[in-house]
């Protein structure tokens, strides 16, 4: 059953990424250079919709709180984020969209994947040294959510009800998605849209 779900949800995710233009490095580059924010609006909306449905479903009782998987907070999360951000902007790919871009026929994505496999291998080899720096030591409680989610195995950073907070933040993401201008410079982006 898990295998079938992996195949179905994975395929839907790959399909949705491609249909949002996320497999196209030009779309990614224009987004990160803050020239054309259509994909950013889609991502913000997706996070908001996902959040509202998940926490709403938990409150209604049909989403298993145990399915949540919260990653630990440590200084290396920020440092790793900086590195990923730089590589993402340079290449126009992130790990998921790079894999999908290969499947759409992009040859440069193959080089991204090759570099990525080497980078992951480099981390496997250097992991003990990285760990020794203390960069991986938990901060602010490690695996925490912003509010305290009822029934979850994770602590909350704040005592606020985490499910209500999740819905409020989800609505905020949706709001920002709608308010954010598609073209921050005010042009109509006709040329970009014509492609």
């Amino acid at each position: 059953m898990q295998i079938i779900l992996a195949l179905v949800i994975g395929a839907l995710f790959g399909f949705a990424l491609d249909r949002n233009g996320a497999t196209n490095p030009s779309v990614l580059g224009r987004m990160l250079a803050l020239k054309s924010l259509g994909l950013m609006k889609a991502i913000l909306l997706a996070i908001g919709v996902g959040s509202i449905l998940m926490f709403g479903g938990q409150m209604a009782g049909f989403v298993d709180v145990g399915h949540m998987s919260v990653k630990a907070a440590y200084v290396g999360v920020f440092v790793g984020g900086l590195l990923l951000g730089a590589g993402w902007a340079m290449s126009g790919f992130c790990p998921g969209t790079g894999v999908c871009a290969v499947a759409t026929g992009r040859k440069d994505a193959l080089f991204f994947i090759a570099g990525g496999l080497l980078g992951a291998a480099a981390y496997m080899v250097t992991y003990p040294a990285v760990e020794a720096t203390g960069l991986l030591n938990s901060i602010a409680g490690g695996k925490v959510t912003l509010g305290t989610v009822p029934g979850a195995k994770y602590d909350g950073l704040m005592g606020l009800p985490g499910d209500v907070l999740g819905i409020v933040l989800g609505l905020a993401f949706v709001l920002v998605a709608f308010v954010l201008p598609e073209r921050p410079d005010g042009t109509d982006g006709a040329r970009a849209a014509a492609e």
């Binding site: 990653k71 440590y74 984020g81 590195l83 990923l84 992130c94 790990p95 570099g115 990525g116 980078g119």
Partner: peptide, 25 residues
């Protein structure tokens, strides 16, 4: 540049413990 970008991206993602999918979204 795609190759170097891939290297930095995945090294960073593993250091962070996740990527655009797992951490951000």
């Amino acid at each position: 540049v795609a190759f170097v970008g891939g290297f930095i991206t995945l090294y960073g993602a593993r250091l962070a413990g996740g990527c655009t999918s797992g951490h951000m979204m």
